[in-house]
């Protein structure tokens, strides 16, 4: 068991290394730092000196992989790869292209992201499972049929529409909550209600449908027939046996995204001006701040791989078949 976890842990290292090499190639090989400098400084009439200065300031003046001018270990250390990529492993994100400390920004901004994403996930899970259970309980009836139709319609609407429509109706017409913004402490709640409601509604269509298929798969299994033969009612069977079994894939599916909640949601945060990591990333993309984008790519992968690890562990906890063999 512990060996298994260690094994999974070790497997994360080559994965992260792969991510690192990939981002390095994307950011430094496909386009050279010179190209980036020219892009940032404006296309025309850029002097060689200005480009050099720009690179110098941000540490892009070093050679890519191998520094011939240095001695000993510094041959490796004084390179862009080491400075920019390897340091990520130590969670030293460095300075953004616009001169801010990325590490500090991330620390500060991940909490608002979490404050939106976590309630969204939990409420969404609750709502989706409830809807899916109702559909399975009333299977074959018109209630189920109309819910399926509703789900298909809901999932055919662009998430942008949910946000714009939600902001318009709840925020602007009804004036129930502020349209956007964020505040520290408990005041945050009034800003969080709207984004959470909107993203839960936006997720019902696909979520409920997905859980329904999971439940239906279980319902057709033999042990459910045994449960009925014992004398359990349809509802008891569903709650005691089907739910219990279907929760295993559901929970492990949730566990994998848990760490990623810190990353926040890109569009939601930018629409509601929530100062989380999502809007941070969007701003960086729009400002073409490569250092931040690179850091976020790495952070995202670390969190995802951590999520995979958690999934493996959670399987061994939740599923007796895995735990005891």
């Amino acid at each position: 068991m512990i060996q298994y976890i260690i094994r999974r842990f070790l497997y994360a290292i080559p994965l992260l290394f792969g991510v690192n090499v990939l981002t390095f190639v994307l950011f430094f090989i496909v386009n050279s730092p010179d190209d980036m400098a020219r892009m940032q400084l404006g296309q025309k009439h850029v002097t060689e000196q200005a480009v050099e200065n720009w690179k110098q300031q941000r540490g892009y003046h070093l050679p890519l992989l191998w520094n011939d001018q240095q001695q000993g270990i510094k041959k490796v250390k004084e390179t862009i790869f080491y400075q920019k990529s390897v340091n990520l492993f130590l969670f030293q994100f460095g300075i953004s292209d616009s001169g801010r400390n990325i590490g500090a920004d991330i620390k500060q901004r991940m909490w608002p992201s979490l404050a939106v994403a976590l309630p969204t996930l939990l409420v969404g899970l609750l709502v989706n499972i409830t809807v899916a259970l109702m559909m399975v309980l009333f299977r074959g009836s018109y209630l189920e049929f109309s819910s399926i139709v509703l789900c298909v319609i809901l999932m055919s609407i662009s998430s942008l529409f949910y946000i714009i429509g939600g902001q318009f109706v709840i925020g602007k017409l009804l004036k129930l909550v502020p349209i956007s913004g964020y505040d520290g402490g408990l005041d945050a709640i009034k800003f969080l209600v709207l984004p959470v409601i909107i993203s839960v509604i936006a997720g019902i269509g696909s979520g409920a449908r997905w859980y329904r298929t999971l439940f239906l798969e279980e319902v057709n299994k033999d042990y459910v027939r045994t449960a009925r033969a014992k004398g359990l009612t349809e509802t008891q069977t569903l709650f005691r046996h089907v739910l219990q079994n279907a929760l295993i894939p559901i929970l492990t599916g949730v566990v994998v995204v848990l760490p990623l909640l810190f990353m926040g949601s890109l569009i939601l945060e930018s629409f509601f001006s929530i100062p989380g990591l999502g809007s941070y990333t969007i701003d960086a993309i729009n400002r073409q701040d490569f250092a931040i984008v690179r850091s976020m790519v790495f952070l995202g992968s670390v969190l995802y791989i951590f999520g995979l690890l958690l999934t493996d562990i959670s399987y061994t906890i939740v599923d007796p078949r895995v735990r005891l063999s």
């Binding site: 299994k221 033999d222 042990y223 045994t226 033969a229 219990q244 079994n245 007796p320």
Partner: peptide
């Protein structure tokens, strides 16, 4: 009461 053919699938695996 009733018992079924395949005891592996007829029992709830997580109970």
């Amino acid at each position: 009461a009733m018992i079924f053919q395949d005891p592996m699938t007829s029992l709830n695996p997580v109970m």
